[in-house]
Amino acid sequence: MTEYNFAYLDEQTKRMIRRAILKGLAIPGYQVPFASREMPMPYGWGTGGVQVSAAVLTPKDTFKVIDQGADDTTNAVSIRTFFQRTAGVATTTATSDATVIQTRHRIPEEPLHEGQILVYQVPIPEPLRFLEPRESETRKMHSLEEYGLMHVKLYEDISRHGHIATSYAYPVKVEGRYVTDPSPIPKFDNPKLGDMAAIQLFGAGREQRIYALPPYTQVVSLDFQDHPFEASKADHPCGMCGATDSYLDELIIDDAGGRMFVCSDTDYCEARQAAGHKGKDAA
């Protein structure tokens, strides 16, 4: 590979991103501003995650990309190929073999281990943004630890729906200090954020923010004593592998309202099927 610098980005850009990552790790949950670059893909396709991955990858890494759990969707395939071509790294779809995993909106079912890095693609890094559109104000709210508005939002959920209806991008508090957006992962994945053995890095390209969770960081999903946080999923087993503990996608399979539920984590589902597990819809 001689047409590009290793991992596409120039060295000065990588240094700037690396400095932001280190500050992010030192202040867990705080969004560090960085000078996001134009990438050869549109904003919304994971430019933040791609820039973070480019800054952490070494030629020895094995790289995996998932898009809502799947290794074989357009976004995942194009980003995996991008780093195959520009960094020459090995790629895999097996969660346990990967050293760097870039993800859009899921945490793999299989627990991650030390030595792995999970890079999230983040569309809106500011958890307070839909409650307060002004950056000057949300920045002040974070500095004053003024998070009452977020609890009001969750309370309004309860008064309207009888329960906290927020089902993804469910806000968390990191180490008792910063309220942080875990990116649009389903709240089923929220309990995995805390106490994880791997390093978690979050990159928001359009919004120009990087934040991080070091391993074994305390991450608490916001809730109320009488409405405790609940990690929910569709109440079915996986149609392909029969798993009852994984997050499921609902697929419409005909015009008569027929549907099936399958694991959103394709690697997890395929590994279980290969091990002989069979769901009711498996061929």
Binding site: N5, F6, A7, E11, K14, R15, R18, I21, L22, L25, A26, A55, V56, L57, T58, P59, K60, I199, A212, P214, P215
Partner: peptide, 19 residues
């Protein structure tokens, strides 16, 4: 070889800061 050597060096610094 700045690109790969700084990548390896950064991983050491990042691992140290993260752990």
């Amino acid at each position: 070889d700045p690109a790969t050597q700084s990548a390896h060096a950064f991983r050491s610094v990042m691992e140290a800061m993260a752990r």
